[in-house]
Design a protein around this nucleic acid. Sequence first.
DNA 1: CCGGATCCTTACTGATACTG
DNA 2: CAGTATCAGTAAGGATCCGG
Lengths: 117, 117
Amino acid sequence: MPYQDGTFGCPVDVGLQLINGKWKPKIIYELLQQTCRFGELHRRIPGVSRHVLTTQLRELEEGGIVQRNAFLTVPPKVEYSLTEFGQRLEPILEQIMKVGEHYISQQKQEAAADPPS
Amino acid sequence: MPYQDGTFGCPVDVGLQLINGKWKPKIIYELLQQTCRFGELHRRIPGVSRHVLTTQLRELEEGGIVQRNAFLTVPPKVEYSLTEFGQRLEPILEQIMKVGEHYISQQKQEAAADPPS
DNA sequence: CCGGATCCTTACTGATACTG
DNA sequence: CAGTATCAGTAAGGATCCGG
């Protein structure tokens, strides 16, 4: 994430890099709720393919956000959880949720003011 | 953003929809600092093409986050700013920045503990 | 069950040229 | 100045098949 000279860019850019990815915030959100196995995570995030889910998890792992715990059993079992650093991302998701809530209540008001024909 | 039946999904999903886009959070961040003309915004966000910047701005406009103000002058002048709702996204960016800061300080510590040869 | 390998389709960039 | 149009090249995501 640092430049070649070892310096860093604007903190916002660094933070954005970490969660930059179509499904990453959603993944983080689900892992904040609970540690998840791969298949469970896949079910909880409708629309994502297994392949992409894998690659995004790998990238989150590289960023030190997600921890991968593989049990060498048959059948295999892999648990994903957040690192200590990953748990620090909770406020981001919390704020996103608040905005979502506000957007919803806003839309409901407009719907009430302009009732369907 | 609502389903056909008028209901909404999980607030986090709704919030993510609004800022889902490679450059949208960065655009919002820049507009939080100041109202910007198109060219200025383009300069402040290195890496984005004019075409994509335009489309992302249009989408943010549809989401009620960004306001477009065109002056019918010669030469033309277009100012982009955040709506009242858009300004409510500030806490999201604030938290992203905090995470970025923490990540940077973390990396610096590791660099100090493991000095370059 | 987890996920790598492959192929394919979009999305995005960069450059350039053109319009109001 | 603020876009739109086009083209070529790259990157990101999706679909499918295969293997431990």
